[in-house]
């Protein structure tokens, strides 16, 4: 809730009389809190081999060329661990990475000052409970284009583009991977060893991802299936610490 909305509600509830006192107390709390906190930034950077990935740019791939128009995926349930124990867990942790929106590639967490961690865990995709809990907002809002309409469920990972390797007339490929119901649950857990630094950069190797597909034989997947589960696992192996 933004401060403005919060103030509006308080205003309606109490009348202006107490407003100044309330605002003062809130600000004081905020100041006190910030002194004991540390900001951690997690950055997801897409690369194509050794080049940064830029949408609509052409890359050499296998014996042909490839171009990407869309790359979007969900990261959820971020946790920081030390010696296999969770030391910090983000609440309501859902992030949509979108290669076309630089802001969506950095997530900032406020953790207690001096907290050390050795491992970063997160889910690649959306869990089954969230998939069945009805309409959600923020990054989970269906207007984000990551929710199937003909069948319920989030698309965990979406990559689209063109490649000379595709066998269809338009040379297009489209992979919408997701599914939460047994036996086609595509959700993957990713665990990375990290150092207790204020900025953690995670490298997403899109070239390695494309090598898991075989574009000449399959150029699209758009529903939950065992193939979607298999590919989701292989893609989860393409995240590494820079």
């Amino acid at each position: 809730m933004t401060n403005y909305k919060f103030i509006q509600i308080i205003k309606q509830l109490l009348g202006k009389k107490y407003l100044a006192a309330v605002v003062f107390l809130c600000l004081q709390c905020a100041v006190l809190n910030s002194q004991n906190k540390n900001e951690i930034k997690v950055v997801f950077q897409p690369f194509f081999g050794s080049y940064p990935l830029i949408l609509d740019s052409t890359y050499v791939f296998e014996n042909g060329q490839i171009e990407f128009s869309t790359l979007k995926f969900y990261i959820s349930n971020l946790q920081f661990l030390k010696n296999e124990k969770i030391v910090f867990k983000e609440s309501n942790s859902f992030h949509l990475f979108d290669a076309s929106n630089i802001k969506s590639q950095n997530f900032t967490f406020t953790i207690p000052k001096g907290l050390l961690f050795t491992e970063l865990n997160f889910n690649f995709g959306i869990d089954s409970l969230t998939n069945t809990s009805g309409a959600m907002g923020g990054d989970l809002d269906p207007t984000k284009g990551m929710y199937w309409t003909w069948q319920s469920g989030y698309v965990n990972f979406k990559i689209e583009g063109t490649s000379s390797l595709c066998n269809n007339k338009r040379k297009e490929f489209q992979f919408h991977l997701g599914g939460y119901q047994f036996p086609f649950s595509a959700l993957q857990k990713i665990s990375l060893d990290v150092e207790s630094k204020n900025t953690l950069v995670i490298y997403v190797d899109v070239k390695k991802i494309m090598e898991t597909f075989n574009l000449s034989s399959i150029d699209h997947i758009m529903s939950p299936s065992s193939e979607a589960v298999r590919l989701s696992y292989l893609i989860s192996q393409c995240f590494s610490l820079k």
Partner: peptide, 16 residues
């Protein structure tokens, strides 16, 4: 039974 929650039902006809 393609749709798992009433909230998401309207998406199907809106998009079809």
């Amino acid at each position: 039974g393609a749709i798992n929650n009433l909230d998401m039902q309207a998406l199907a006809p809106i998009t079809h």
